[in-house]
Measured scan of single mutants.
Amino acid sequence: MAAGGDHGSPDSYRSPLASRYASPEMCFVFSDRYKFRTWRQLWLWLAEAEQTLGLPITDEQIQEMKSNLENIDFKMAAEEEKRLRHDVMAHVHTFGHCCPKAAGIIHLGATSCYVGDNTDLIILRNALDLLLPKLARVISRLADFAKERASLPTLGFTHFQPAQLTTVGKRCCLWIQDLCMDLQNLKRVRDDLRFRGVKGTTGTQASFLQLFEGDDHKVEQLDKMVTEKAGFKRAFIITGQTYTRKVDIEVLSVLASLGASVHKICTDIRLLANLKEMEEPFEKQQIGSSAMPYKRNPMRSERCCSLARHLMTLVMDPLQTASVQWFERTLDDSANRRICLAEAFLTADTILNTLQNISEGLVVYPKVIERRIRQELPFMATENIIMAMVKAGGSRQDCHEKIRVLSQQAASVVKQEGGDNDLIERIQVDAYFSPIHSQLDHLLDPSSFTGRASQQVQRFLEEEVYPLLKPYESVMKVKAELCL
């Protein structure tokens, strides 16, 4: 049975990233139509530049190519590739079939990587351009969430054990800070992308030097003109047959890092959902379990974690691919890159769409948070109580021993009897502590235990987050809708 299948058929496997999760716009960027249309555009740009620099290419040939950029006979191309065992030459023939007058000058002087690699770089750039505003929107939604809850005390956790208090907004800023680093890295790697350009079979530009009869300047002009037509500021000066596969490492490393950030955020949300302090959106008709109707599973956060793990592992592909590119190139890269580049971007696209949807509907339960604080705060307040007693004339050592005994009794009630923490009640009825009984409410005010959390939130948002989001103001209103 021949390899390949009808990918629109229910009898043929289709990647869930495309069929179930990723956005239509990201799927289109990695589609065959987008790819092969870009090949034709690159052939047109090459012909236009070659004509401008004096090669015998007519206006009629150029116009014929322009008129057929979208006229792609995919069936013919597939048949040609089956016959020739070469995808680029299959599309040269297919393009030439609908451009008979231009057929002889299509791909003039070029090698397969002229269309293959340059198209990949265009796709990487455009895919990054799709991700950047999506990530900015996630940051914006979380920034709104953090600002609104900047002063809401909550129990902090280290080692997932109760620690000092923080605020809900401050905790959210930990998430935002990681995503801001990801946004900066995505922008950097996007701006650092260079075009492969017009380089020939081993990167020496020998074929173009021959076409222009040894004119170095025209060869350099050709490279520059096509690079500018493709919208790049610069091209690699040095290439082998391909652009260095280190570029793929750079791009997928940034995406993998984004995956790590999203995994951490969504894990926190899942843990908070278990504590009943916070939940992701839950639709009115949504079913959490087929057997347990009360369940409210954090399905979206779980999906993000599941896909983020996949995204983090994909960076190993370009690392290994770059390491086995012998001399000017081997074909070890080809099949692998067809999979890992598309999957990385479709996965990143999915987790950003999902995280935006989550961040637009996060639900906080202040009463649950308050109750958990009441359970733990008495123990945390013991040092403040000791200091207040010393100020009232008591002995630190005597007070410490009193607190120690009462704390152990209260802990026994919590752990052995399943009761509430009654340390404060014990202190309130103990005559030894009568000098500070009137101060206990103040000493137990949760806001006095959150330090500068709310001020940190305000400063972080104003100095770091809002300036970073400013270039994306025009796209901030787009909502994230999930079908599944």
Rank of each mutant, 00 (worst) to 15 (best):
Q356W: 08
R171P: 07
L152W: 04
I249G: 02
W326Q: 05
C113S: 10
R303A: 05
R194K: 12
T154V: 02
I403Q: 06
T167N: 03
L484W: 12
K170I: 02
E279G: 05
C304K: 05
A235G: 05
I436D: 03
R85P: 07
L307V: 03
L128D: 06
L272K: 10
S474Q: 06
R300H: 15
L142Y: 04
M316F: 00
Q41S: 12
F379A: 06
Y21P: 06
L352Q: 09
L152V: 07
L44F: 14
P162R: 03
Q409A: 05
V364A: 08
T154A: 04
A381F: 15
C173L: 12
G200C: 00
R459V: 11
D398W: 06
N336E: 06
S334Y: 07
Y13F: 08
E48F: 05
Q61W: 06
L319T: 00
D398H: 13
K66T: 11
V324R: 03
H107Y: 03
A49Y: 00
T354I: 00
Y243W: 11
V475S: 01
S448Q: 09
I287V: 09
M65R: 07
V198E: 05
R459W: 04
T330E: 01
L423I: 04
G4N: 07
L165S: 07
D117C: 02
Q41C: 10
R371F: 13
P298T: 06
T382E: 07
V324N: 04
Q458C: 09
E70R: 13
A235P: 08
P162S: 08
M89G: 04
A342F: 00
I351F: 09
R396C: 03
I265D: 10
S289L: 00
A2C: 06
K246I: 07
I339H: 12
W39K: 05
C266V: 04
H91Y: 05
K295Q: 07
F236Q: 09
F449E: 07
M278A: 03
E280A: 13
F460G: 12
D73W: 07
K187G: 06
F160V: 03
L272G: 05
R245L: 09
T119L: 01
F145C: 02
G96W: 01
F345K: 06
V92I: 05
I57A: 12
I139S: 14
K246A: 14
S412T: 09
T201M: 00
S438I: 15
R459H: 14
Y114T: 01
Y34V: 04
V92F: 08
V465F: 04
G214S: 12
R190M: 10
Q439H: 14
R188V: 08
T166D: 01
L482D: 09
T94C: 07
R37K: 11
F345R: 06
C98K: 12
G5P: 15
H159W: 00
Y365G: 15
K415V: 07
N185M: 10
L252Y: 07
R338G: 08
M387C: 00
L209E: 06
F232G: 07
S9T: 04
S253I: 15
S306E: 14
A103F: 08
L362R: 11
W45L: 04
Y365T: 09
S261Q: 08
P467W: 00
C27T: 15
M292K: 07
Q51N: 14
E328T: 14
E25A: 04
Q164D: 01
V189R: 12
R33Y: 03
W45M: 11
I249C: 15
A392P: 14
D87F: 05
C399S: 09
R83D: 07
V189G: 06
S9C: 07
K233Q: 14
A18Y: 08
T347V: 11
N118W: 01
F236I: 08
R194G: 11
N336P: 06
K246D: 15
W175F: 00
S261Y: 12
I386S: 07
K170F: 00
T52P: 04
G203T: 03
Q221S: 01
R459F: 13
A453K: 07
A388W: 06
G116M: 11
L69I: 07
P318R: 04
E464V: 06
L53I: 09
D191T: 14
